[in-house]
Simulated scan of single mutants.
Amino acid sequence: MTHKPICIGVLGTHSTGKTALLRRIEMELRGHGLAVARTGRLAKRAADIGLPKMSRHTVQSTEWIIAQGIADEIACGAQGAEVVLVDRASLDAVAYYEAALEYRGEHPHRLEKERIRLLAATQLPKFQLLLATVLDPDVPVDQSHDYDRRYRGLVDRHVHSLLADEQIPHQRVTSDSHSHSHAIERALQLCLKEAAV
């Protein structure tokens, strides 16, 4: 690998438009001739190998998701991507895990919680842009998914609390079309500027 790709990550609770947002960014970037790769489907892949997901997340499933996400991002760069779009940045897995613990009324050992947070935090410097979707409870979700409203809300709260507590630079993306357009424009400007350097 002779270059370091531009890395844009998205995080947020389920069915808040993360994947659709990254698809739109990908289309715009490809339209400008950039080589783009998109990672994702980590929770499904974890479930496919027998790891728990959603409100049943454990420290092991969280660690696997973070580690597999890192491996996927590296593979994209090694295969020549100029831009890597990360569907569920590392901190997202921590929010899902901590929301699952709260949902179940469990309290992990302090050092275990710190270890998982640190693992995710080591990845944050690689992101040139983080987009955090915001839950709008009035927007209907896909009825084919059996979503627990309480858990979905907890994940949203944990995502934004982690970002605020750690003072991590990011852009909030609401369900409003103008907010999505602004996020896409910011990603496009960033990538075109970096590509020109």
Rank of each mutant, 00 (worst) to 15 (best):
V197E: 13
V83Y: 11
L42S: 08
K126L: 07
L34S: 07
L130F: 03
G17E: 01
I74F: 04
R38L: 15
I116F: 04
A67V: 10
Q79V: 00
D87H: 01
A37W: 12
K126Q: 15
G153W: 02
A120R: 02
A75G: 10
L111V: 11
V197K: 15
G12I: 11
H107V: 15
E106L: 11
S61G: 02
A121P: 01
L162F: 13
R157M: 08
R149M: 10
V134K: 11
L192P: 01
L21F: 13
A75M: 14
L22S: 04
L131G: 03
L11D: 05
V59T: 09
H14M: 05
A121D: 13
L190C: 13
G9T: 02
H109D: 14
T13K: 01
S90L: 11
P169R: 03
P5N: 01
A71N: 12
Q79E: 09
P137L: 03
V83K: 13
L188P: 11
A196P: 05
L42V: 05
R23L: 10
G40H: 02
E185S: 11
V94L: 15
R24K: 07
T13G: 02
E166K: 14
Q171S: 13
V94P: 00
L135W: 07
L22I: 05
H178K: 07
A99T: 12
K53W: 12
L11V: 02
Q79Y: 03
P5H: 01
A89V: 01
S177M: 11
S181Q: 12
Q143V: 14
V86N: 10
G40C: 09
V141P: 00
K193R: 15
D142R: 00
Q167C: 07
E112C: 02
E114S: 13
E98H: 07
L162K: 02
D87Y: 06
A196Y: 07
E73I: 10
H57V: 01
L124H: 05
E114K: 14
H32V: 06
C7I: 15
A43Q: 06
T13M: 04
K53I: 15
H170K: 00
A46E: 00
H107N: 12
Q167D: 12
T19D: 12
L11Q: 01
G17T: 05
V10Y: 00
Q171C: 06
R38C: 14
L34E: 07
S161F: 09
